[in-house]
């Protein structure tokens, strides 16, 4: 474990960089996923079709290809940004598709009677979504949403392998290639870094699930 102890500061900054990346993707993917889920259940056919196409394409494409596309395709569209931006956008779009599906399963888990009651009271689509369906949907969507987000935390390592720069994965790369440390101890340090993130998140998720669980 020598290399890890010697470079603890480097690991720490990598850990923080990974966390920052993850937080951007967390917020972004929840936003994109929620908007798409709203499209997916909306009465407007063109928006529904867009959401269906989005989900099917991004769920079935490997993340690696999405990231390659961001890196090669966006500059061709005239968008020139850092790799951090490209990788975050790729991971957001990829995760958003799963968030959309998790939310939709949550909406579907709300008993039809709730929606019927809301409609019977004369609430409009937007009102019944906002005040009746979505608050309940979010609750029952928390377990799948949580696992989608934890999967995203792990996928951030793929983005790291692409080179967002300075994150845990690149710390591992720098230490082994540029400074010539042995792989196994360095990777163990990187693995511990990711485990801290994922295991903490999993523990928090269990707590949250217990708190908001609804017995049906």
């Amino acid at each position: 474990m020598g290399p890890v102890i010697d470079n603890l500061d480097l690991y720490w900054s990598g850990f923080l960089q990974s966390l920052e990346f993850i937080l951007w993707c967390l917020v972004g993917s929840l936003l994109v996923g929620t908007v798409m889920a709203a499209f997916r259940v909306s009465p407007v056919p063109s928006l529904r079709a867009l959401a269906v196409a989005y989900v099917n394409v991004f769920r079935n494409t490997p993340l690696t290809i999405v990231l390659f596309f961001m890196a090669f395709g966006l500059p061709e569209l005239g968008i020139n940004q850092s790799y951090f931006f490209f990788a975050a956008l790729g991971l957001i779009l990829y995760t958003g598709a799963f968030v959309c599906e998790a939310l939709r399963s949550g909406v579907n888990a709300v008993p039809a009677g709730q929606a019927e009651a809301a409609r019977a009271l004369g609430l409009t689509f937007t009102q019944s979504m906002r005040q009746v369906i979505l608050p309940q949907a979010f609750r029952s969507a928390i377990p799948p949403l949580g696992s989608v987000q934890i999967a995203m935390f792990k996928n951030s390592a793929v983005a790291g392998a692409f080179g967002i720069g300075g994150d845990l994965y690149s710390v591992g790369k720098t230490l082994t290639s540029a400074r010539g440390y042995d792989y196994v101890p360095v990777l163990t340090g990187v693995a511990i870094g990711y485990l801290i993130i994922t295991l903490t998140a999993a523990a928090l998720l269990t707590l949250l699930e217990r708190k908001v669980a609804i017995v049906r």
Binding site: S156, Y183, L187, A191, T198
Partner: peptide, 14 residues
């Protein structure tokens, strides 16, 4: 379950 697959693959390889 907590490790990213990329890390697991690199680890196995090395």
């Amino acid at each position: 379950r907590g490790l990213p697959v990329v890390i697991t693959i690199v680890y196995v390889w090395r």
